[in-house]
C-alpha cells in the first residue's frame, strides 16, 4: 500500500508552484486584511470615540454597526475563501495529485 513519492519533484512541478503561489497570495493577503479590520475595533473604540458615537439609525451608533460588521465580514470572507478554494485550489490540487499518485 505504501507508495513512495519524490517530494522534491512534486515541489518543483509547475502546477504545484502555481498552486503554492496562488494560495500564498490569497491566504496571506486576506488573513492580513481580516486582522487589520478586526484591530480597528479596539483601536477605534479607544481613540475614535467621537466617530463611534455618531448615531446612524435611531439610537444605533456607528460603533455598534462597526462591531456588528465584523461578524458579516468574517462570514463573508469565510465563504469567499471556500468559493475560491473549491473552484481553483482544489482543481489545481487534483491536477497535481493525478500526475503523481498512481
Amino acid at each position: 500500500m505504501a507508495q513512495t513519492y519524490d517530494w522534491a519533484a512534486i515541489a518543483k512541478n509547475p502546477k504545484f508552484i502555481e498552486l503554492h503561489h496562488r494560495k500564498q497570495r490569497f491566504l496571506f493577503g486576506w488573513w492580513a486584511f481580516s486582522t487589520v479590520y478586526y484591530f480597528l475595533l479596539p483601536i477605534g473604540a479607544a481613540y475614535a470615540t467621537d466617530l463611534f458615537k455618531i448615531k446612524l439609525l435611531g439610537n444605533v451608533n456607528f460603533g455598534y454597526l462597526f462591531a456588528l460588521s465584523q461578524f458579516f465580514v468574517s462570514w463573508g470572507l469565510a465563504h469567499y475563501y471556500a468559493h475560491v478554494a473549491n473552484k481553483d485550489f482544489d482543481r489545481l490540487t487534483r491536477e497535481v495529485v493525478s500526475e503523481f499518485v498512481k
Partner: peptide, 13 residues
Amino acid sequence: MFDEIYVRQNTGI
C-alpha cells in the same frame, strides 16, 4: 524534508 511536509500539507498526498 520541507518539500515533503509542504507538498503534503497543500495536497494531502
